[in-house]
């Protein structure tokens, strides 16, 4: 399938499949692992992130001429944090149960590297319409990935899906899967399956965070981000070795 670049459909497909932020780019691991204890929480997290991502993408794309290049990171942080706070208020007022379940992970969307990453890699350079669809695509990709992980964890770990019992009575839920270790395990198996099927493998072949700035939110947010300024941590390592050696 060959889609025209920067067109809405291409952007959606890119976010959901080609560059799925969770499975292909391995971004945003903190919320992915923390909020997928149930399918409902996963959807809640996914959609709120989508809303923030789309809004901040639009805003940053509109303001890209105004925001001075040197001060773009603080500006992005302020814009993203504002949208996060707005979404936080809305959720507290209108969906209090999801708000309570997601707790601290809602304000922490600020440091979700998917949002910063898209601002830097896409919205800060392209037009507003393409940026909106880029945000929607990435957001839906994120939501879908969370839903998949959340569903597996809830069904295996609690025997329910969206709160309804789905497993036969004889099945004893494996509690481990809704606890912390289950998150790591399910994620490991999803990526292993994708490796096996060679889906998005090109993006992950050399999965090595020390060589790929993308996998490390921290490097994403401040230095060159996902575009070529990799090896930040690698440098860090070498320097540390020099110092200590």
């Amino acid at each position: 399938m060959k889609l025209e670049k920067d067109k809405p459909v291409e952007r959606l497909w890119n976010g959901i499949y080609v560059e799925n932020p969770v499975f292909c780019l391995i971004l945003g691991m903190c919320p992915t692992l923390a909020t997928t204890t149930s399918a409902t929480n996963a959807i809640g997290m996914g959609l709120s992130t989508t809303a923030i991502l789309t809004a901040s993408n639009l805003m940053i794309s509109l303001l890209k001429k105004v925001i001075p290049d040197r001060m773009r990171i603080p500006s992005y942080i302020v814009i993203i944090a504002s949208f996060v706070t707005i979404v936080e208020f809305l959720m507290e007022g209108f969906t209090p149960e999801i708000y309570a379940a997601l707790g601290i992970y809602i304000p922490l969307i600020v440091v979700n590297c998917i949002i910063m990453g898209r601002a830097e890699a896409y919205a800060g350079k392209k037009g507003p319409v393409a940026s909106i669809f880029d945000g929607l695509g990435m957001g839906f990709g994120f939501t879908l990935a969370l839903l998949l992980i959340g569903s597996v964890r809830e069904i295996v770990g609690a025997g329910t899906w969206f709160g309804f019992k789905v497993t036969p009575g004889i099945y004893e839920p494996v509690n481990l899967f809704i606890l912390a270790p289950g998150a790591f395990l399910v994620m490991a198996f999803f990526v292993a399956i994708m490796n096996k099927l060679k889906i998005g493998a090109a993006r992950r072949t050399n999965w090595d965070p020390t060589e790929n700035g993308c996998t490390d939110c921290s490097s994403c947010a401040k230095l060159g981000f996902c575009s070529g300024k990799a090896a930040v941590t690698e440098e860090a390592g070498k320097k540390a070795e020099e110092v200590q050696g």
Binding site: V66, M71, S75, V78, A81, T85, I86, F89
Partner: peptide, 27 residues
């Protein structure tokens, strides 16, 4: 540069105050 960032921050702050007052009731 600093002026622009300050403006953005200020605008966000005002916007947030506004949204806060609207959602205060429902919350």
């Amino acid at each position: 540069d600093i002026l622009i960032v300050t403006c953005i921050t200020l605008a966000s702050g005002i916007l947030l105050g506004f949204v806060y007052n609207i959602t205060k009731g429902p919350i």
